[in-house]
Design a protein around this nucleic acid. Structure first.
Length: 661
DNA sequence: ACGAATAGA
DNA sequence: GGTCTATTCGT
């Protein structure tokens, strides 16, 4: 049984103790994927493009509206749905079904009108000269994300106060932008704060040092759910009358936070969204689609079997494509409930080991994938389909100009001007009978501007044309990718984001910084946890020595010549400022610690132990979170950059630091 | 490193 | 169902 499954409680026991342990509780603050007490939210904007247009136009909520792209509809608001309008309809059909519907065309770029998109009354007549722009929606998406982050931030600072502050300061929720209108949030650290705030008996130190001891039961016999929370029915053998355990309380608190986030989005920006709340991403995502619009759905642990059993597995993330089709063929069913009868061995006979064990777990509600605090995009693409096809280089180049302008504008938003980020590769895709693509490096010496992108695109176009038959061309696209962090960004990081480093210098004078910037990681094949800064190091603002889990694993004790007292940064700063403080020597690490920091330091050891334990478990269970994740770990060799640039070896590093600006 | 394929809104 | 975007896979 995986450790995500709660241990069985014998039903006849009066609940004297919780099913959950202190260890499972305290893992919450690290965003650990290994605890069944985790709280993950998935938030999905309702009919997003349609709402964007409603907000922009000031359309009342009860007015039917759809977003139009040429003759088809790409988003339909909830007021229009009772008329039977769906995405497969044409504009004419929609108007017939609902004469009063607002059909708003998306913004477009127009040939010969510079690189600016605009909303144009006649764009639907100009499929030949216009190109769709999704920029307005990207901009709204950014605003919404920012509002959500602020709401989460407020929550953590409000709650993490007073006596528990030393256990909880610095904790925050990881937020992953899953698409233009969806986010995952790992609420676990915030829920942890609230739990400690409301239930003093859960605070560290109250368990007499035995982390595997069960928690005391929650001091309630019934959970008071908010009237607007939609609950998934419990599994057949579970009863609503049974006393709640801490996982129920976790969901209750999570629901409160999600409600606050959704409320903030509504109050500040007038967007409604739907949310799912569960112990992992997969369940949260299924949950958010259960009650729409403007509702939130809670999938309690005790409801998971019942909930999942009713689905086709092709609804589960990653199973909607060819993999799902294969599985359907192999086992002759699309139902989760049927697949539950398939043994792991039977899965292994048809699928590779990783996929087999991932699938075995996922249909049982076990999903260990992490919420990856990623906000920055990895590539930008601008494309156009031609109906009818185009037949000359001259025609093609007009579109390349627009692609270049589109992408350049987005690069500016992303900070190319300030040298924060810069793509290294540009690619041209070209479709005739088949799709062909060519890519070249963007010369590092050049300043990226619209014209450079255009010139590179033309170069690629020439290459594509010599490769084969270029006409008639039905689709053309230009993209930039392989983003790298610019110089000024590194300065920014060193200047005011790596507080751990600051504290380090402050504490022990100057110390060579090379180790911080050079790619010195003896990188393990990348069992590397994707999001170091959602782990314990974020809590403690650890300096970079903690950046590499492997180093940590193999050298649990920091080297003597480095400052790694394990103190929170704030403590280090205090130490540097004040000079005559009573000290004691910690018997765990033999370091001098100010007396008034004793408790905090003990907490640090406690958390550090948990961290090591978690890693041990991660190694033991060589199980990956997703089937797709496996290949990147087996590839690793030969991808090290030659000049030791290391941006390949340390993916997303800048992102981790600057995740939320 | 490159081009193709897959996934999802 | 067609379009558009983004990421991962295979060599």
């Amino acid at each position: 049984m995986s450790s995500e499954d709660p241990p069985n409680a014998s039903p006849n026991d009066a609940v004297k103790r919780s099913r959950y342990t202190h260890r499972q509780l305290h893992l919450l603050r690290q965003g650990s994927t290994a605890t069944p007490l985790r709280a993950i939210a998935h938030i999905d904007l309702d009919a997003f493009y349609a709402q964007c247009e409603m907000v922009r136009l000031g359309t009342p909520r009860d007015t039917p509206l759809a977003v139009r792209q040429w003759e088809s509809l790409i988003a339909i608001n909830y007021a229009a749905r009772p008329f039977g309008i769906s995405r497969m309809m044409t504009a004419a059909e929609a108007r017939k079904a609902c004469p009063n519907i607002i059909l708003q065309h998306v913004a477009t770029f127009r040939e010969g009108e510079g690189g600016r998109w605009a909303y144009r009354d006649d764009s639907f007549k100009n499929i030949k000269t216009d190109k769709v722009s999704l920029d307005p929606y990207r901009a709204e998406s950014r605003k919404i994300l920012k509002t959500m982050k602020e709401a989460l931030e407020r929550w953590s600072t409000n709650e993490s106060d007073g006596e528990i502050h030393r256990f909880t300061h610095g904790l925050s929720a990881a937020l992953e932008k899953a698409s233009i209108d969806e986010v995952f949030i790992d609420l676990s650290p915030l829920v942890y704060i609230v739990l400690l705030q409301r239930y003093p008996e859960l605070r560290p130190g109250s368990q007499d040092g035995d982390r595997d001891a069960e928690l005391p039961p929650p001091p309630t016999t019934a959970v008071q759910w908010h009237p607007e929370d939609c609950l998934i029915d419990l599994d057949l053998h579970e009863r609503e009358e049974d006393d709640p355990d801490w996982d129920d309380i976790v969901m209750l608190i999570g629901a409160e936070i999600v409600r606050a986030v959704r409320r903030a989005v509504w109050d500040n920006l007038s967007y409604t969204c739907s949310a799912g709340l569960a112990r992992n991403k997969m369940l949260a995502k299924l949950g958010s689609a259960c009650n729409k619009p403007d509702k939130q759905t809670v999938v309690r642990n005790r409801a998971v079997q019942h909930f999942l059993g009713g689905y086709k597995f092709t609804q589960i993330r990653m199973l909607g494509g060819k993999l799902g089709d294969q599985i359907t063929t192999f086992f002759g069913t699309e139902k989760v409930s049927d697949l539950l009868n398939v043994t792991l061995e039977q899965f292994r006979a048809k699928l590779d080991d990783h996929t087999a064990s991932w699938l075995y777990g996922i249909i049982r509600g076990d999903d260990r994938s992490e919420v990856n605090p990623r906000t920055q995009i990895k590539s930008m693409l601008s494309a156009k389909s031609f109906r009818p096809s185009i037949n000359s280089l001259e025609q093609a180049e007009k579109w390349l100009r627009i692609f270049a302008a589109d992408i350049y504008g987005r690069l500016v938003e992303d900070g190319v001007l300030e040298n924060r980020r810069r793509p290294r590769v540009i690619t041209l895709h070209h479709r005739t009978a088949q799709t062909r693509s060519r890519q070249i490096p963007i010369p590092a010496a050049n300043t990226i501007d619209e014209n450079l992108l255009f010139e590179l695109a033309k170069t690629l176009m020439r290459q594509v044309m010599t490769d084969g038959q270029p006409w008639p061309c039905s689709n053309l696209s230009l993209s930039v990718s392989s983003f790298e962090d610019g110089v000024s960004k590194n300065k920014a990081i060193e200047g005011f984001l790596l507080r751990g480093d600051q504290a380090k210098s402050l504490h022990q004078g100057s110390r060579p910084r090379d180790a911080d910037v050079s790619p010195n990681e003896p990188l393990p094949p990348e069992k590397k946890r994707r999001i170091d800064d959602s782990g314990i190091k974020r809590f403690f603002a650890q300096p970079l020595s903690g950046d590499n889990p492997v180093t940590d694993q193999e050298n649990p004790q920091p080297k003597e010549d480095q400052d790694d007292t394990g103190l929170p940064v704030e403590a280090s700063e205090l130490e540097a400022d004040g000079n005559t403080m009573p000290q004691y020597t910690c018997d765990r690490c033999s370091r001098p610690i100010p007396e008034h920091e004793r408790e905090e330091h003990d907490d640090w050891h406690f958390a550090k132990d948990l961290e090591l334990q978690e890693r041990q478990e991660a190694r033991d269970a060589q199980q990956q979170s997703r089937p797709a994740a496996s290949s990147s770990s087996s590839r690793g060799s030969g991808t090290r950059g030659k000049g030791g640039r290391g941006s390949r070896g340390k993916p997303e590093r800048g992102q981790m630091r600057l995740a939320f600006q």
